[in-house]
């Protein structure tokens, strides 16, 4: 790494790549072998949530955990900052 690199603000692109891969691989692995309806479920959930809050597609995390004999489907939805919570209701009626 050269001296100039020490002053660089943005993180090196390889660590960005690693972080993105970590998330997408984990997500795809948890959907794998799981029920076929997961992608559709994810899409429909997103539509329902968007009637109320304007969230991004990547704000919804769905995880399927298998623990001794039982499966747990886990959702989490990251809500946007107040300012961005906009008119879900209106747009969904169009």
């Amino acid at each position: 790494m050269g001296l100039l690199a020490l002053f660089r603000r943005t993180p090196p692109s390889a660590s960005v790549a690693k972080e993105r891969l970590r998330i997408i691989v984990a997500q795809e692995r948890s959907a794998r072998g799981g029920p076929d309806y997961l992608p559709l479920l994810r899409r429909e959930l997103l539509e329902v949530i968007r009637k109320y809050v304007n969230v991004d597609p990547d704000a919804i995390q769905i995880n399927l955990d298998r623990e001794e004999g039982q499966e747990v489907l886990e959702f989490s939805v990251a809500l946007p900052e107040k300012a961005a919570r906009q008119p879900g209701r209106k747009s969904s009626r169009q």
Partner: peptide
């Protein structure tokens, strides 16, 4: 390129996969 932080390292790929 790995040294410069421009490319995923062996350890990175090993860990992800």
């Amino acid at each position: 390129r790995v040294g410069k932080g421009e490319m995923l390292s062996v350890e990175d790929v090993k860990e992800i996969l």
